[in-house]
Write a protein that binds this DNA or RNA. Structure first.
Length: 509
RNA sequence: GCGGUGGUAGUCUAGCUUGGUUAGGACACGAGCUUGCCAAGCUCGCAGCGCGGGUUCGAAUCCCGCCCACCGCACCA
């Protein structure tokens, strides 16, 4: 176990050193829960987002929108976040420390006061003569700490706003226009990719718990009388591993492996759309390079669910560092959000369906993904050690540098030729980096470390016949390819469309 | 938030106990030489005591506060 932890620490050190992930505000000492993506991390992150768009924008044919991160208070009152996104706290009048009211009560009296109103908590503390757990001082009144970042819109601090805790609300707000855009089609989906903000009391676990993070969310609107996905059959036979709430409650770590169809038939998952998106999520994660056995879906127990959810399945990925990590959640949000926004805004958010002209409030199934967490999982799973050789075995298409271009020697015109090759590759849309520093072996090692799948080397033979060697990261084998064919060959290789052995003449070591 | 441990170049680290060193090394990085394919070698170079205060003639070293990281607890809608 210790050894495994060292390995993931080594991976994080690599990520920091080579420009994937950096602590934010570092020269001012840093602030917990915030991270920057460096040059390589940014590309990697964007590639993950691009893949997600392939799944949801292209594959599902959903509508993408982009709405503000700052939201006026009314929106989040309606959504329930102002009231439910909170912790009750007490502050000591003497030493000034703040504590969770529930914890202080449990520590002092052994009683659970979860669910009480603030006034009831005040009464409870007074009756039980509860003092500050740190200094024994008098406790102040219970107050609610909301985990949303609060701000003001405009000068004069009149209008309260919050940084959005989820991108989803932006979609619900636009429902009227979206359903018109969909021209009556149901189900239809809308997606949004962007930052979300949660003012965590104590962020931990590096990039796993951030105060500002990127999420990719889809809201699938459907008629509650017809909760079917038109393409369910295309994923019905996909296998998924489920950890049901029932088994969790029994204390059993029992995983049932079923197809999406069986999950619905056996009533493990109570909604076909959820089963469909679970299967799609599994495919997405595997596409990023997460192995099947390291993916499971955990059903949230009733009391764990968000205030808006009637059923939630979390997609979890196994990591050495943090154990099972939630990377996506698929929730049945019912008509909660639309009903609430209809009520609070006074707008009609119903939709008319079918020949009967039936008016319905759409129900919503929400597949909601983090981007930062899967990115961590991708890095951790990609990091391999083969003796002294340590490198990222990233999926080829995911690598932030796709090709390294090296002159074998720094003379005889080889650097100039290599730069020409690099320019050719970049002009064809490939992320190609040039490196002429140190021995050729060192350069291969540098490239391997950041997961560069192919390295092209220009040697003396290049000057004679315009061919170069192409080296495969995983096997270190080389083939000789003509420069003319190089862009197409590399592009095909990156998308696993051809076999490395078949792209050119093998080079003897 | 609580308790514990820690913070010295890009990275890993010596020095801290017992205050006074030009703060040492290794790797990495850069320049040059060398090098016809997998972290070779040589020369030179860049670069550091988390932040703020205090004690002291003098602080990387002692004291206080803060920040950050790691472990455990709690939290994770």
């Amino acid at each position: 176990m210790l050894e495994l932890k060292d390995k993931s620490e080594e991976m994080m050190e690599l990520a920091r050193r080579r420009g994937f992930i950096w602590p934010s505000f570092e020269i001012y000492g840093g602030v917990g829960g915030f991270y920057d993506f460096g040059p390589l991390g940014s590309v990697l992150k964007n590639k993950i987002i691009q893949k997600w768009r392939e799944f949801y924008l292209v594959g599902e044919n959903f509508f993408e929108i982009d709405s503000p991160s700052v939201m006026p208070e009314e929106v989040l009152k309606a959504s329930g976040h102002v009231d439910h996104f909170v912790d009750a706290m007490v502050e000591c009048k003497k030493c000034g420390n703040s504590f969770k009211a529930v914890d202080v009560a449990r520590e002092a009296t052994g009683k659970d006061i979860e669910g009480m109103k603030e006034a009831e908590m005040d009464e409870f503390f007074a009756k039980n003569k509860v003092k500050c757990p740190d200094c024994g001082g008098e406790l102040g009144k219970v107050f609610l700490f909301n985990s949303m970042f609060r701000t003001f819109i405009g000068p004069g601090s009149q209008r309260v706003g919050y940084l959005r805790p989820e991108t989803a609300q932006g979609i619900f707000i636009d429902f009227k226009r979206l359903q018109r855009y969909a021209r009556g089609r149901l189900p239809f989906g809308a997606i949004q990719i962007g930052k979300g903000y949660r003012n965590e009391i104590s962020p931990r676990q590096g990039i796993i718990r951030l105060r500002e993070f990127t999420m990719a969310e889809a809201e699938v609107f459907f008629d509650p009388e017809n909760p079917h996905h038109p393409n369910f059959s295309s994923l019905a036979d996909e296998k998924i591993r489920l950890w049901r709430a029932e088994d969790q409650i029994k204390g059993e770590e029992k995983i049932v492996e079923v197809t999406a169809r069986e999950a619905v038939e056996k009533n493990y998952i109570h909604n076909e759309l959820i089963a469909y998106y679970a299967a799609l999520t599994k495919k997405f994660l595997m596409e990023l390079g997460i192995p099947y056995e390291h993916i499971r879906f955990r059903e949230q127990k009733p009391w764990q669910r968000a205030h808006y959810s009637s059923e939630t399945w979390d997609a979890e990925v196994y990591t050495k560092r943090f154990g099972w990590v939630e990377v996506a959640g698929i929730a049945n949000r019912t008509d909660y959000d639309l009903s609430r926004h209809a009520k609070f805004s006074g707008e009609d958010l119903t939709m008319t369906v079918g020949e009967s002209g039936r008016k319905i409030i759409c129900h919503v199934v929400e597949p909601s993904y983090g981007i930062d967490r899967p990115l961590y999982c991708v890095l951790e799973h990609a990091f391999v050690e083969e003796g002294e050789r340590k490198y990222l075995r990233l999926k080829k298409w995911l690598a932030p540098v796709e090709v390294g271009v090296f002159p074998l020697l720094k003379r005889d015109g080889l650097p100039e030729k290599a730069i020409q090759v690099q320019n050719l590759l970049r002009s064809r849309g490939l992320l190609a980096d040039y490196d002429d520093s140190g021995s050729i072996g060192r350069r291969y090692a540098r490239a391997d470390e950041i997961g560069t799948p192919y390295c092209v080397t220009v040697d003396h033979q290049t000057l004679e016949d315009d061919t170069v060697t192409v080296r495969d990261r995983d096997t270190t084998k080389q083939v000789r390819v003509s420069i003319e064919k190089l862009p197409d060959v590399l592009t095909s290789l990156l998308h696993d469309q051809i076999n490395f052995e078949n792209v050119g003449t093998p080079v003897k070591k």
